[in-house]
Structures are given as structure tokens and as C-alpha cells.
Simulated scan of single mutants.
Amino acid sequence: MSRIDAATLADLAAQANRAPSVHNTQPARFALDEEGRILIAADLSRHLAVGDPTGRDMGLSCGAALEGMVMALAARGIRVLVDDLWEADTRSWRPGYRLAARLTPAGEASPSSLADWTEKRFTWRGRFSAATPEALADLERWAVEADDITFAGGPDALAFIAALNDGASLSVMRERAFRDELVAWIRLTPAHAAYAFDGLNLDALRMGRLEGAVAGGVLASPLFDLADRLGLGKTLVAEAGKTMTAAACLLFHRPEGESPVVSGRAFYRFWLGLTRFGFAGWPMAVLADVPSASETLLQRFPLPQGHRLINVLRVGPAPITLAKYRLPARDLVLG
């Protein structure tokens, strides 16, 4: 088997980076070591210190990119052995980076059927179109048969989750430091230097320029606190109307104590899996991140014993397909 060179790694990295990441921060970086193995590391400059204090979401994001790399290699007929390096918390390899995984070529592989859906997967933050009964039945059957997905469907379940999500979102948005960090990753004008590359831009947020300017002005200033004191905070963050258009919500959970890199790999497969049925997804991460919200949610939708909630996706058909905004390959590879 021929060694992977720098040009090939850049192409593979671009394919791997189609994976989802928290706030579209795209923290995974790729390098070759002296033995021709692929190293995946987290760029710590992209860590969300306020929203992700433990680094779990960064680990999940790197895990998703790792799964993308495994699929990209398999498409070239290359099988790899994966060493999960996240728990070792190695930061001495290179300043500003934390090693996440090492991939060692180990024979031949067949392409993954999920790889066909990487370009079709995207986050939809608008109102969903109506799902056909057949597509919804296929989705529910798939979810019920999986051991890490809990299906929540029907108007009552959606209303319960929608209200819980809005309440949890308001609680975190009341923290000025969280809002400041979020705004740093929002690209509210096409003139922003990173508009087409990372973060959350107007297209991804389904906002017009005027709406984006107003949102940025409110979130990045004390105006939010003033509006909240006047009772308008809930209105500013409310998503319930859009959530109620979803076909269902899917609770994604994994074994307690599992490395976030492993969970991130499974999360990417999960999202690609639902994409096969014609569904887009929109995460409600606060339902997993806010303890009170998570506890309330799991009282109604219990998980298998020994599992922890990773994320909740509201899913449904999207009326259009959105482009992905990703960093160029040259920014993903470390020399």
C-alpha cells in the first residue's frame, strides 16, 4: 500500500471536514507522522470556553471528523486502525493542539454506504416541510431498531420538547459571556472575512440582512438584558413555532463514560442515517447541556440504563438544500 502524501491528505481532510461541529467551529486538524499515520488533533483556538468548558463538544466534533476521515479513506479502499487519544489529553505534541486520534493504514476496505450522504447532510434552522407518512414510518422504524436513538413523535411530544428547548435556551442566553462567545461565531454580514468558511452565517441561520443586524445588535449588547427584564427575552430566543413543524425529535444517546471521540463518530453516522430518509436535522444541544432540562426531558423519555444524552435533533424535510460553509483544505492540514 502506497503512503499517503500531503496532497492526498489535504483532499481527504476536506472530505472529512464535511462532518458537523459545534457552532461550525471545525476544530479538527490533520497531519502525517513519521510513519505515515494520520494524526487528528483539536485546534484549541476554536474551543468554546464558555459554552463547552469541559471540551466535550470539541471532542464530539473531532470524533465526527474522524468518522468522516475513515469513510474518505474507505472510499479509496484503505482500511485503518483507530487509536482514540482524547482521554490522554496530550497537548505537548504541538503547542495549541490536543491530540484526538491516530489512524494507521491496515489493509483494504470497502466504501461505506453512508458516505453517499455526506454532501446531502446539513442543518436546517427554518420551518420544515411536511413529511410523507411513508418516510416518517421508515424513520421511526429505523430509530426504534437502533440502540442509541429514542424516537419522540406526535404533537404532544413535540410541544413538550419545544417548550423545554425554549426555556433552556433562554436560561443560557441570559449569560452575557455565552452570548458574547456565540456572537463571535456568527457571521451577520456577507462582508465578514469568514462568512463563507466557518461559524454560523445568515444563510445557515435563515436570516435576512436586516434581521441579522438587529439580532447582532441585541445579543452583543446590554439590550438583551433590558429586553429580558421587559419580558421579551423569551420572544427573542423562541423556536417553538419552527420546532412544531418537525416530523419528530430524535434523542441521541450513548453509553456513559464513552470517549467523546467515539460518541462523535457515532453521532455523524446517526445524522447520515436519518439523511437517507430525506430528513434534515436541527440540534437542540441545550437539552443535553442544561442539567435541569435534561432531567425533565428524560423523565418523559427515559434512556436505556447506562446511557447518557448526547444531543436532540428535530428532524423533517427541508424545502431547500443549503450549501456547506467550510474551511479550505489548506487550513485543515498541519505541516
Score class of each variant (00 low, 15 high):
T150Q: 13
A143L: 02
V183R: 10
D138T: 02
S169L: 12
R174M: 14
M173P: 08
A159P: 02
D166I: 00
L136R: 14
R174H: 15
S169V: 03
F160Y: 07
A135Q: 09
F160E: 12
F178R: 14
G153Q: 06
M173K: 09
L139Q: 06
V144F: 05
I161W: 06
D148Q: 08
A162Y: 13
L170S: 02
F160Q: 09
N165S: 15
R174E: 15
D147C: 03
D166A: 07
D180P: 01
A162S: 15
V144I: 13
V183K: 05
A137H: 05
M173A: 12
D148E: 00
E175D: 15
P155I: 10
F160H: 04
G153Y: 06
L139H: 03
S169F: 06
A143P: 04
R174P: 00
V183C: 14
A184C: 08
A177V: 06
M173W: 13
G167P: 06
M173F: 13
D147S: 09
E145A: 15
P155A: 11
D147E: 12
M173I: 01
A157K: 09
V183L: 15
S169D: 10
I161P: 02
A157P: 13
A168R: 04
A162C: 14
G167Y: 02
S171H: 14
F151A: 07
M173L: 15
L139V: 11
A152Y: 08
V144M: 07
I149W: 10
D180M: 00
A168L: 05
R141V: 02
D138H: 13
A143Q: 03
E140W: 00
R176S: 07
R141K: 08
D148H: 07
E145M: 08
V144G: 06
I161F: 02
V172R: 15
A152D: 09
A162T: 11
F151H: 13
A146N: 12
S171W: 04
E175P: 05
W185A: 13
L170G: 02
E181K: 10
P155G: 12
A162P: 12
A162M: 12
I149F: 06
G167Q: 07
L136I: 12
F160M: 12
D180G: 11
A162V: 09
D148R: 12
S171N: 09
L139K: 06
D166G: 01
A152P: 10
F160A: 04
A137M: 04
W185T: 08
F160D: 11
E175Y: 11
R141H: 00
A137E: 07
T150A: 10
D147F: 01
R179C: 06
E181V: 05
E145R: 14
L158E: 07
D156I: 02
F178E: 05
A184Q: 14
V183G: 11
W142Y: 14
A135T: 11
I161D: 08
F178H: 15
A137Y: 02
A137I: 00
E145T: 02
G167F: 01
P155D: 15
A177C: 03
D180W: 05
R179G: 05
G154L: 08
D147G: 07
L164N: 12
D166W: 07
